[in-house]
Amino acid sequence: MTQTLQQSLATNAWESRSSRRRLWLIATLTLLVLLCALSITVGTRQVVWTNLFAALGGRIDNIDQAAVAVRIPRTVLALLAGAALALAGAVMQGVTRNPLADPGILGLNMGASLAVVIGVAWFDVGSAYAYIWIAIFGAAATAVFVFTIGSLGRGGATPLKLALAGAATTVAFSSLVIAVVLPRSDIAGGIRSWQIGGVGGATFDRLEPVLPFLIVGFVITLLSARRLNSLALGDELAAGLGERVVLARATAGFGAVLLAGATTAICGPIGFVGLVVPHLCRMLIGVDHRWLLPFSAIGGACLLLAADVVGRLVVRPSELDVGIVTAFVGAPFFIWIVRRQRGREL
């Protein structure tokens, strides 16, 4: 009697949770579609509906339609970049078991940026593929570097030590980026776009080379969800469950590096998306990575699209890079998480 009752209670709880997840999934997907529509309709130039649909159909006959045609690749880029960064953040938080992990805060994005800038300025790198490889290399090298620094000394890689190492590396690299780019006025976009990321000026031609990298990154990270769930139990328990801990960490981490590096190669360093989104998603749907990872990807796309739309609206007729907007949203969130950390670790 009691056993069946317990069973039915457990089934009920499970069902209610999964129905709630389904509900949230529908809600975020609706939001995503809405934001995509907003991102195409809203901008410096007011466009009437007939022109909008004409442009969506591929016609560029007048200025309004041309304006919309520019917004389409930009929307796609914001969508992809947001999803990639949030997914990278969620995976890094899982791999390092560190709530402060984010490709921006741990310095990966700035590392990728610095690598690209050095490649362009000193080694005359021109092709888009070379850009992306260099960015991924920079992100990977920075990840190894920051993780090594952060885990030196007593207690290994505590969240705060890791975050401090990452933040210091970001500050240091950002000043090196200026030093490398400043004498070279010919580098695309100049200093600003390699210090603060943005999605403006996107075209499908520029997007195309990065797609394979992003797809591989998405596949690797999404497939690692089950492994991340085991890792969350702690290394010993995960090993006891038959997980090869080092391998699991390495593959998931590689996927995250791929996503962060490839995104930085086209957008420049965008911070805090990977921090904010997974935390919010965890509050909504819980800690199961099989749900968390896809949810974070959708949430990240929503956040970056929203940030881009806001950036276009606040300083009309000029524009604000998304990197600025995400910092305004993300930095208070970062401070909030730092405050929540246990006093013992400080």
Binding site: L160, K161, A163, L164, A167, V171, R192, I196, G271, F272, V315, S318, E319, L320, D321, G323, I324, V325, A327, F328, G330, A331, P332, F334, I335, V338, R339, Q341, G343, E345, L346
Partner: peptide, 25 residues
């Protein structure tokens, strides 16, 4: 706390840096 103070400061600095970029734009 020492580390917490510095990390909070870094967060505030990131926001202010964006504010500068915003005003300049």
């Amino acid at each position: 706390g020492g580390t917490r103070f510095i990390l909070v400061g870094i967060g505030v600095a990131a926001m202010l840096e964006s504010a500068i970029a915003y005003v300049l734009s």
